[in-house]
């Protein structure tokens, strides 16, 4: 009896693994899926964990040391944080081209972490009410 149970559990695990594999494969064939995979590869483990659980991740500006929060999205999705981690003002800058959201977020992360001043020079401010 226990042998039958174990065999069913193995079959169930196998079916789930195959389903995950197919989902993963399908996702990798879409622009959004590919961009999300690239984002995952380039975020730090802490940033990916934060993004997976909360839908945003924080970065530190390369020039000022200030903290920014990048929300899921492809425009008006970056906020400057205050010392207590509250969103102060929104800044909007995006890479040119019709890129999927994952690519936009990765470009924003790299820009803030590597060339913050250049990013801020082109950015426009907005009131981050909708992002909370």
């Amino acid at each position: 009896m226990f042998g039958v149970l174990r065999s069913e559990q193995r079959a169930l695990r196998r079916r789930r693994a195959v389903r995950r594999l197919f989902c993963h494969h399908r996702a990798d064939r879409t622009p959004a899926g590919r961009a999300r995979r690239l984002l995952q590869q380039w975020l730090t483990p802490a940033q990916w964990k934060q993004f997976s659980s909360r839908g945003y991740f924080d970065v530190t500006g390369s020039d000022s040391g200030r903290r920014y929060r990048i929300f899921t999205g492809s425009a008006m999705n970056v906020c400057l944080l205050d010392e207590r981690g509250r969103t102060r003002r929104g800044i909007c800058f995006v890479p040119v081209g019709d890129l999927p959201a994952g690519d936009v977020m990765l470009a924003q992360k790299l820009a803030l972490e590597l060339c913050e001043d250049s990013a801020l020079m082109v950015a426009r401010e907005f009131i981050p009410r909708a992002l909370g």
């Binding site: 690239l38 800058f93 890479p95 040119v96 081209g97 470009a107 060339c115 426009r124």
Partner: peptide, 21 residues
Amino acid sequence: IIRSFDPRVEECVFFPRLVGG
């Protein structure tokens, strides 16, 4: 940031010019 080509860099990502949204 990589400003000049270096063949020893194993993985390099290129992102487009940024503009204000």
